[in-house]
C-alpha cells in the first residue's frame, strides 16, 4: 500500500470536518448524521449508546443545505426487515433555532432499525433516514 500524501490527508480531514461542523457539532460525541439532498439531520441519543428495549430521547439539529428552512419535525423508527415500527409514539418539542428534543423512543428488538425524520418546510415534507444496527 502506498502512503497517502500528507497534504491530501489533511484536505480530507478538513472536508469531513466542515461537512460535520455544518450540522450537529454542538451535540457532542456520539452524534449521528442522516442526510438527504436538502437537509442534514444530526441526532444524539440520550442516554448514548442506545440499548435495546430501553427508553431514550434524542437531541436533534436540523440543517438546511439549501433553500427552504425547516418549519417542523416528525420522528419515527422502523425495522425494515420485520416491517414494524416502535410500540411508542415519540413526542417532538421545538427547542428554538434548528434544535429539537424528541422523547419516548424505545427500540424493542436487536437488529437493523431505520430512523426516519420528516422535515417539514413551507413546501411540504422531506424524509431524511439513517439505518442503525442495535446489538
Amino acid at each position: 500500500m502506498r502512503p497517502v500524501p500528507a497534504m491530501l490527508c489533511a484536505a480530507l480531514v478538513a472536508l469531513a470536518g466542515t461537512a460535520h461542523a455544518a450540522c450537529g457539532d454542538a451535540l457532542g460525541a456520539g452524534t449521528l448524521v442522516a442526510a438527504s439532498p436538502r437537509f442534514d439531520v444530526a441526532f444524539r441519543p440520550d442516554p448514548a449508546p442506545i440499548a435495546v428495549s430501553k427508553h431514550f430521547a434524542l437531541d436533534v439539529v436540523v440543517c438546511a443545505k439549501s433553500g427552504a428552512a425547516a418549519t417542523g419535525l416528525g420522528v419515527d423508527a422502523h425495522m425494515p426487515a420485520h416491517r414494524h415500527g416502535m410500540n411508542y409514539r415519540p413526542s417532538v418539542a421545538a427547542r428554538g433555532g434548528d434544535r429539537y428534543r424528541v422523547e419516548g423512543l424505545l427500540l424493542h428488538m436487536p437488529g437493523a432499525w431505520e430512523f426516519r425524520f420528516d422535515v417539514r418546510t413551507a413546501q411540504g415534507s422531506e424524509r431524511v433516514s439513517l439505518g442503525v444496527e442495535i446489538p
Binding site: N87, R89, S91, G104
Partner: peptide, 13 residues
Amino acid sequence: ATGTRHVAAEHRN
C-alpha cells in the same frame, strides 16, 4: 411514566 405517556395502540396490537 415515559412508557405510559408515549405508548400508542396500533392495529397490530
